[in-house]
Design a protein around this nucleic acid. Structure first.
Lengths: 218, 218
DNA sequence: AATCATTAAAGAAATTTTTCTTTAATGAAA
DNA sequence: TTTCATTAAAGAAAAATTTCTTTAATGATT
């Protein structure tokens, strides 16, 4: 048993995964001018059980009104706040290839509280370029820049074989959280937060359903 | 209770999610020439419990050897096969923006059994372009092309507000599975497989850890 | 050859997450 | 004003997933 930071029995991860979709739905309703939304309505949109929705929302401070539902505006505010989308965190991105530059272009990230302040690469053809106003520097400049900016997150979008090297660099320069887009698993000190996001996991799930259906359903 | 296709108690989704990383690790060992790998070694790499690894692998046909582990080559083959990465499926991608074109550029997808045969958009500046040899057509041509090619999967990388329209189009032209990269949830007939992949869920999880750490750990 | 330590595998136990059930509230309809 | 149907919320039950425990096998060491 590891005696370190006992995960303080927080919000279930599946709940957190669902919340951004609740938020996206609520934002849509807000734009359309709808004032209240019921758990049933949200559940119908999400294709899940209504009690799942109320349970998920019970982790936030919002209180619903019987026979009416949740106030849409309040829901948007509470979820944005709860998900940490209202706090701006600065990030560095390493690996300005196709996936990396797609992330740089995604203004959704800054809308949700992630401010990518600089990108790094080793490929001289991309260095100096700007994507969505974010400049690409040579990886050697990582040190100078991480000092002067308040950067808490590192995004890894390099080839899998270089993921560990980049992670080590990020840790060395005081980054607190790493968002790893490679299928490689990185080793970091235990106080560093790592989130692995791999497309291939999703591909595996969809294939599993697709190929099983071919076999098992009449 | 819905009386339809009772999910035939398959492999747990968390297991399937982990498998691509086992595969990536095994492929690395194979390249390095390592012949056997133990669950302990895999678990150490993944930062999970070793019994989790053996349990996960027990869903495949591989059998380990006491005091030795699993044969690396066999592990690669069994996992690739199990995950459906050896079967080639054809796909259409709709929305050749930054995320869409990043996917078109990702040769990892074709390595893992996904063959994107064409892309579609409405933006005249991208139509006619080729990304990684995949041509971008106007969405109106979707029909003609889906007829002649054997396309089973549709990938949605348009803005969230257009997701449903695109999904309807895909369903109309006989697509079996949809990989939805927008935070919007789409409504499709129940025999269509949908996999939602939203970056913001992952962002929410990492923020949750990051911001909680700030608060709760001494 | 005998012992030891490491491992896979199977099943039990614990934990986590989801679904079900009950209760109380209240807007709308009669 | 009364009844009805819909809803949120809380807690119980069920289901799913992970972790723990035991067993048996076997390569390495003595």
């Amino acid at each position: 048993m590891v005696q370190s930071s006992k995960k303080i029995q927080g919000v279930p991860e599946p709940t957190i995964r669902r919340m951004p979709s609740y938020l996206a739905f609520a934002e849509g309703l807000l734009r359309k001018g709808q004032q209240f939304v019921s758990s049933t309505q949200i559940a119908n949109y999400m294709n899940i059980d209504p009690t799942q929705v109320t349970k998920d929302l019970s982790y936030t401070s919002i209180v619903g009104k019987t026979r009416v539902g949740y106030e849409v505006k309040a829901l948007v505010d509470v979820l944005s706040e709860f998900l940490g989308f209202t706090i701006m965190d600065n990030a560095f991105l390493v690996g300005a290839g196709s996936l990396g530059s797609a992330l740089l272009h995604d203004s959704g990230l800054s809308h949700f509280g992630l401010n990518i302040v600089a990108a790094f690469d080793v490929n001289s053809s991309t260095i100096g370029k700007k994507f969505n106003d974010i400049e690409v520097f040579h990886i050697d400049q990582f040190r100078d820049l991480s000092q002067e900016m308040n950067v808490v997150m590192g995004i890894i979008t390099v080839p899998a074989e270089n993921a560990q090297t980049v992670a080590d660099l990020m840790v060395a320069w005081g980054i607190k959280a790493i968002w790893n887009f490679t299928p490689a698993r990185i080793k970091v000190p235990e106080d560093i937060i790592v989130q692995n996001t791999t497309l291939y996991s999703n591909l595996a799930i969809i294939f599993n359903k697709l190929h099983n259906d071919r076999k098992e359903v009449q």
